[in-house]
Write a protein that binds this DNA or RNA. Structure first.
Lengths: 158, 158
DNA sequence: CTCAATGCAAAGTATTTGCAACCGA
DNA sequence: TCGGTTGCAAATACTTTGCATTGAG
């Protein structure tokens, strides 16, 4: 599927330094994921996969698309994000804010969440480990482990 | 107001046998938490603190209140849950479902979440530990660590 | 050309806000 | 009494659905 080595990722980032990922490449990714490469998906894919790793809300991505001259509805952005998540291309992140965030890095890692600023920061995958994972109840299996470390600004600094 | 004879009080307690924490106790809890003990808060407090540890949505609690003959609006339930969470009396739990869950056990523990059934299960606090907590960025301190273990039903069983 | 798949308007659900009413001191 | 607090109607924010249209094969 689509798990890149760090090296491969770095190479990608260099190639696409500022710009979005080329359409041809996005098309390939979509096909491999079993998603029909439609105009809208390709456009969103270019934005999502091209510009480094980020944490996007549907609304933010919609704005970016409009700014880039791509005209589509917010609902389509929601649906597309949902499908990309299902396909493992991106990862929905759950924080307590009402909004849903999507991490453009689908790799296995966890997150800081700064409530006051409604901002998410990646935690490097090797910096944290969960021990003593409990047995799931009979009939169930673990599908994913989400760790969110909630941060608050230290008062009286500066 | 609400001055009952001893007899009336006894009757009430009998009537509510299965149910909730006594109003006096809830009133004390609220005062200690710095929350004014209003009619609505006391009523919700009785439901929340009385009946063992549970995972409630605002809507569910609202229904319970109505069934118990307490008339209040859903908005008040939301506000009350928010305030109880702020005060540390209960704990908001973040899962990917759109809804917010409130755990009536504010103690330090984590959760299983069964997506398909939209259900939350407590993990005993000693059954899990997170190692190698990373340094927060400068200027920030860790306020809470949330671990959610997502479960899926094992297929082909039975 | 064909029809499963898509994109979006409209609908639905979850939550917050602003302010009249209230009540604890 | 009376002013900070509260509770709720109304508004907002977020997300999903149903179906006419489309465009990939």
């Amino acid at each position: 599927m689509l798990f890149l080595t760090q090296e491969a990722r770095d190479r990608l980032l260099l190639e696409d330094e500022v710009a979005p990922m080329p359409r041809a490449q996005v098309t390939r990714i979509l096909k491999e994921a079993g998603l029909r490469p439609t105009r809208q998906r390709i456009a969103l894919g270019c934005l999502i996969f091209g510009d480094g790793h980020r944490h996007l809300t549907a609304e933010h991505l919609h704005l970016e698309a409009l700014e880039a001259g791509i005209s589509l509805s917010l609902a389509t952005v929601y649906n597309t994000l949902f499908q990309f998540d299902e396909a493992g291309l991106i990862r929905r992140v759950s924080v307590n804010s009402g909004k849903a965030y999507y991490d453009t890095d689908p790799g296995d890692h966890h997150h800081f969440y700064i409530e006051d600023e409604d901002r998410i920061i990646d935690i490097a995958p090797d910096r944290i480990s969960v021990d003593g994972l409990p047995e799931p109840p009979p009939g169930y299996a673990i599908s994913k482990v989400d760790v969110v470390i909630r941060l608050k600004r230290i008062e009286g600094v500066g």
